[in-house]
Each structure stands twice: as C-alpha cells, then as structure tokens.
Design a protein around this nucleic acid. Sequence first.
DNA 1: CGTTGAACCTGTTTGC
DNA 2: TGCAAACAGGTTCAAC
Length: 277
Amino acid sequence: MPELPEVETVTRGLRRAILGRRIVSVELGKTDFIDDPTALEQHLPGREIEAVERFGKFMLLRLSAASAGPSPAAQPRERHTHVCLLLDDGRELRFKDARRFGRIAYLAEAPLAEELKRFGADPLEVKSKEFESLIRRRHARIKALLLDQRVLRGVGNIYADESLWKAKIHPARLGAKLNQSQAETLRKVLREILQKAIVMRGSSISDFLDAEGEPGEYQRLHRVYGREGKRCYRCRTPIRRAIVAGRSSYFCPECQPAPRGFLALPLPGKSKSKKKR
DNA sequence: CGTTGAACCTGTTTGC
DNA sequence: TGCAAACAGGTTCAAC
C-alpha cells in the first residue's frame, strides 16, 4: 500500500483524468478485500465523480446524488484480478493490487463520516501543540506511533524512517521520552519530507506508478530506508536495520542513539560471497 | 495500555 | 543451478 505522498500523487493525477466523468458500470474480479462488493454494483452506475480527494492513505471519490431508481442488480462476474469502473468517455478506472492490501468500500455520507473518525491527524496540517500531545503522552515506541493511522493518517514505513533519521530520533524511543524540542523537530521534518515527496511524485521502490504510468522520484532522496549497511549521509556510519513495531526499520546508530537495551539486527554477513558494489 | 506474532495475498529477491 | 526462505509501500486481531 502506498503512503501519503504516493496516494496524493495518484489522487492529483486521477482528479485531472476522471473528475466529472460518470460511472457507467462496474466489473468485479476478486472481491475478498471489499466488504460489500454488491454495493458497488448497486450504487455506482449512473453517478458522476464530483470530487477526488485524499484522506490519509485513502482516496475518496465523491459521487453525485443517486438519481433514478436503484440500478438493476448486476450479475456476479467471473473472477478477475481487479475492479473496473467503466466511465462515460469509454475509459476504465482500474484497481490493480496483487497483494490485496488495498481496500475499497462504497459508503454513504453518514457511514463515511463514521469511518473517517477512526483516523488521526493529518501530518501536513497538525499543529505543534496537538502533535506534542499525540506523541509525548504515549509510552509506545515513536515508530509505532508514526505508523498508527489512529494517531496520524498517511505515514508509512518509508516516511517514518526518513523523518526519524532527519530528526535524529531512534525508532525504538518511547514517545514519552521525547522532549518538546524533539517532538517539534519531528513534526516539522515529517511535514517537510512529505511535502518534498509529493513534489517528487512519491517513491517508486519496485512498482509504484502514478496516474500517468510514471514512476516517482523521491526514492533518490531516501537517506536511510532500504540502505542497511550503506553509510549514513551525515556521519558515514553504516546504517543498521532492526524490527521495530513489527516492521523493518532503518536508522543510523550514531545519529539516532538507541534506548538502553536495544539491539539492532546483525549486519548481513558476507560469509562467503563477495558483494560487488 | 502496549507488544508480538500470525493471518491475509502474491511476486520478487536472497541465500544456502 | 535450484529451491526455500525472506522480504515487500500494510492492517487487524488474538493472546499475553
């Protein structure tokens, strides 16, 4: 699943591409990642896409009020690997997601409002005081807090690690152990990194492409993510990796001092094979 | 309240 | 060379 900058990039691209289009029909493939697939078939046809917005890592397609009566129930379709929305200009909006980590739902106004309540602050907008209270009263690890969509919406593994490196904070530090200045630094670098990543149209590690089919460029600016064993851009110390909050976490052991008792994973051994570089 | 591990999927890379 | 394990932009839930 992409993170905030990638979703923002695709959202902007789709806004240009499908705003104002009308959905003609829906074709469903595998649907085990959709709570109520038939709701899509029932409620989407005939509706116009009136807004394309990002909310955290999700994209919201706001639809016109339902017009005529309910559409006739569509037949269940053969299994595909994606969802297709056929549009009134003959194009198709396709949802492809091999790992099926994405989610799709049809939500009317009230259920949508309920759903959105589950998410925390927008990391691009959150103010100093609120961010501080979200972090400094918590005894969870800062990495876990950054990844928790109930705390902040939109941050994932890449941008959590990049922000912590830039703020010189170790991912395993407890939120409550950050001082005011560290919390404020983290809030600012997180915002700056996300903004820069949006300008660069997101990070393409292996397969992320935007709405025009182009890769992003922010991976060129990654400072720690995926750089285990390579030298820190600030101090030249080899970057280490550890599992924090259940996720691979990259950090500089020199710039980001670990809490007591913390152990990083051993650097990958070059036991036999020589690495070319 | 917080952590860990498993489950959910499939494709690609790594390591023995 | 070949195959199994590890790993991947993530979330959720049970168990502790």
